[in-house]
Design a binder for these strands. Structure first.
Lengths: 148, 148
DNA sequence: GTACAATAATTGGTACACAAACTATTGTTG
DNA sequence: CAACAATAGTTTGTGTACCAATTATTGTAC
C-alpha cells in the first residue's frame, strides 16, 4: 500500500514531471534547430518525411499524434520556408500530399548532427535514455488506451 | 557502440516520445478537470497553491518552470473563474501576491480524487509510474543543466 | 443518378508557451 | 538625492495544441 496522504503534492505528479521534462528537452533542441529555422514540432514533421514521403495530413496526424488543425498551419509555414510542398492528390482531391523539396532533403544531413548533440548536452547515458524511452512508450500506450 | 545508422528515426527520438506522452497524459486529465473548469496548467497552479499560499508570480514561475508571460494571463483566468485572488504586495508594489479564495480552497477536496482516477485510467502499476518519475527527474535536471 | 453519409482539410475560437520589449517599482552608487 | 541598474509583471508577436464547425470531395443507397 502506497502512502496517499499527499497525493496532490506537486512533486509527485507524474503529469507535472512529464510536462516539465517535455518543455525542458525541447528547450535543449531550440538553439540547435534555430539555425535551420525550425521549431520542434516542425522538426518532428521533417523527421517523419525523411523517413517516408510523401505523406498526407491524415498520415502525419496519425504518426505524430497531432490534430490536423494543428498541422494545417504548421505545414504552410514549412512550405513558406521552402522545405516541403503541398499539393492535392489528383486521385482524391480531398487529401493533401506533402512532399519534400530539394532543400528539405538536403537539410537532413545537417540534422543528422542533432541527436548526438542533444545527448551530449544532456550528459546522460544512452542506457538511461533508452530506459526512459521504454517507460514513455508504455505510458503513451496506456494513455491512448485510457480515453477510448 | 550503439547503432547510429538511423539516429533520425522518429521512433527513437526521446523528445518525440516525451512530447507525445505529455500531450497524451494531459488528455487523460482533460475530462477530469473539465467539470472544475480547469485546464491542466491551471490545475498545476492550483496544486502549487494548495501546497503553499500565498505565492508570487515569480515563485510560481520557478516552481512550475513556466514563463511569467505565460502565467500572467493564466492567473487572470483563474481569478475570473473565482479560484484565486491577485493583489499587489503592500511592501513591494512590484510583486503580485496570489492567494486562494474560499472556492479555490474548497476545490481541493474535489481534486483529491483526480490522481487515483488518472492512475486507474492509465492502468499502470504505481511501480512503473515511480520509475518513470525518477527517469523524468533525471532528464529535467540534465536538460536544465544543459542550456546555461 | 440524386440524396445522404463518410472522409480529409481548413477555419475559428480559446488557451498555453516562449522571447523580446515595455512599465513600474525598488535598490544602489556616486 | 539624482542617475542608474536591477527586479517583477505585463504586453506583444509568433507558434503550437485542441475542439467544434465548415467546406469540399468521395462513397453509398435507394
Amino acid at each position: 500500500m502506497t502512502d496517499m496522504t499527499d497525493a496532490l503534492s506537486l512533486e509527485r505528479q507524474v503529469c507535472f514531471a512529464l510536462a516539465v521534462a517535455s518543455r525542458s528537452v525541447i528547450g535543449v533542441y531550440r538553439p540547435l534547430l534555430q539555425p535551420m529555422g525550425l521549431t520542434h514540432p516542425q522538426y518532428l514533421v521533417m523527421l517523419a518525411l525523411w523517413e517516408q514521403a510523401p505523406l498526407s495530413v491524415k498520415e502525419l496526424s496519425k504518426l505524430l499524434q497531432l490534430d490536423p488543425g494543428t498541422l494545417s498551419p504548421l505545414l504552410k509555414r514549412l512550405e513558406a520556408i521552402g522545405y516541403i510542398r503541398r499539393r492535392r492528390d489528383s486521385q482524391d482531391e480531398r487529401v493533401l500530399v506533402v512532399t519534400l523539396t530539394a532543400e528539405g532533403r538536403e537539410l537532413r544531413s545537417e540534422a543528422e548532427r542533432i541527436p548526438s548533440s542533444v545527448v551530449e548536452r544532456l550528459g546522460m547515458d544512452l542506457e538511461e535514455l533508452q530506459e526512459l524511452h521504454r517507460s514513455l512508450t508504455r505510458v503513451i500506450a496506456a494513455a491512448n488506451g485510457a480515453h477510448r
